[in-house]
Write a protein that binds this DNA or RNA. Structure first.
Lengths: 239, 239
DNA sequence: ACCTGAACACCGTTCAAGT
DNA sequence: ACCTGAACACCGTTCAAGT
């Protein structure tokens, strides 16, 4: 039953013992690639050491010779994704506001490239630290250009990054780009004891069902605009 | 070995079969209370059906007569926590900005009351929906008072809530209120190829190690102030 | 050096049986 | 009606053995 022939282009080292000279080794990179494929397809809870080994055509225990455990696989995945951040170099004449927005969009794009990993990334302090170093530079550069003092720069970047992370959470758990919160919200508000949430009820009523359809892209831009306006206003107030 | 005596004030129904008249039943509420205790003490990964049953002095399968599965236990927990949102009624003379900030602080307090559940709450769309209805009213009320049109109100609330969620992620994974990102950040920046992140390096250098010590409370207030300023400025621009 | 097989100590949950 | 016991199909990981 056990065959030495590669099947479907995958690695074929089913035989026990050390691989022969020239035969492909199992490697950290190959393991992480296969793991990322699983996570992208079936989510983080689909990733098990046993299934990962199965996809690689290998005994579950073989993986442990290249990575110390499952936690290392996941954090390796996070590092891999952040190493792929693609920041677009801004044009020289662009104002700082546009640079800052472009940095935020690029960061969101990076997180969105692997939605199922986003929650993991965003909730791991080590990963966030990696992210700030990997993707933070354009944020800092834009705000330096705005003439903000160092402390204000850090505060602004943190606020933007927290917003993006929070936004990402909502987006990651929703497959489509549009989220129809109309019927659900109307139902919930109606279920409340009357008078509990009058302002919420008025706002929901004024918008109507169509107005409550939520577009992620538009929502992101709205939040971004609000925060950038805030930075701008705070800058002006400082003189 | 099996005793019918209650121990340590806990339920003592170790005996098989239907409980005798007057004997305390296992209940949804009792299960959720025990589950919340476990999560608060040992985190969400400490919560297993088997351990939960152990704490209740009961067979693991008994739980299934009151809740359909583990997912139901977790989502029951989320609902319980949000039902405890405590919103402070604002004074009548207070300006909308302060009302809005107070709403944000109350929401953060609610999430912080059970940090280990925060990630769960914040990443579950159903839970977020529950949250918006349970804790959203003061946000909407404050922004109505500011005279914003319905669409702008929704955008502002979403931005604030996303910021709070993102902020909560960083806070939930860090036990102490202060987070010393100085040494770590300096080390990482130094490890980069020179010239990769000049602005980041300059900002980190200007602040110094002491300036990079991160206080969660101050960080939250800074972000809040920035966003409220943004709402204010956008309102002014609209006329 | 690298890979495997059996085993250990866990999971959540189904299903039939007890009272 | 409510609770239990055994069993099923999983986990991640340790450890000794193969080549």
């Amino acid at each position: 039953m056990a065959s030495e022939v590669n099947e479907g282009g995958r690695r074929g080292a089913r035989r026990a013992g050390r691989p022969r000279a020239g035969e492909q080794h199992l490697s950290r990179a190959a393991i992480l690639d296969a793991a990322l494929e699983i996570v992208d397809r079936d989510g983080i809870e689909g990733l098990t050491m046993r299934r990962l080994a199965g996809d690689l055509g290998v005994n579950p225990m073989s993986i442990y010779h290249h990575l110390p455990g499952k936690a290392a696989v996941v954090s390796g995945l996070v590092d891999e994704v952040f190493s792929r951040v693609h920041v677009i170099a801004p044009g020289d004449g662009e104002p700082w506001q546009d640079r800052l927005k472009e940095a935020a969009r690029a960061y969101r794009r990076t997180l969105r490239a692997h939605r199922n990993l986003a929650l993991q990334i965003v909730s791991d302090p080590a990963a966030v630290s990696t992210a700030v170093v990997a993707a933070g530079e354009p944020f800092y550069a834009a705000l330096e250009r705005a003439g903000l003092p160092p402390r204000a720069i850090v505060e602004a970047v943190d606020t933007l990054v927290d917003f993006i992370h929070g936004f990402m959470l909502g987006e990651a758990s929703n497959p489509s780009g549009t989220f129809d919160l109309g019927p659900e919200l109307v139902r919930r508000v109606a279920a409340l004891p009357p008078g509990t949430a009058p302002a919420l009820a008025r706002v929901a009523g004024a918008l109507g069902e169509a107005g409550l359809r939520y577009e992620f892209d538009a929502g992101f831009e709205a939040g971004l605009a609000l925060i950038v306006t805030g930075i701008e206003a705070a800058r002006g107030a400082r003189g």
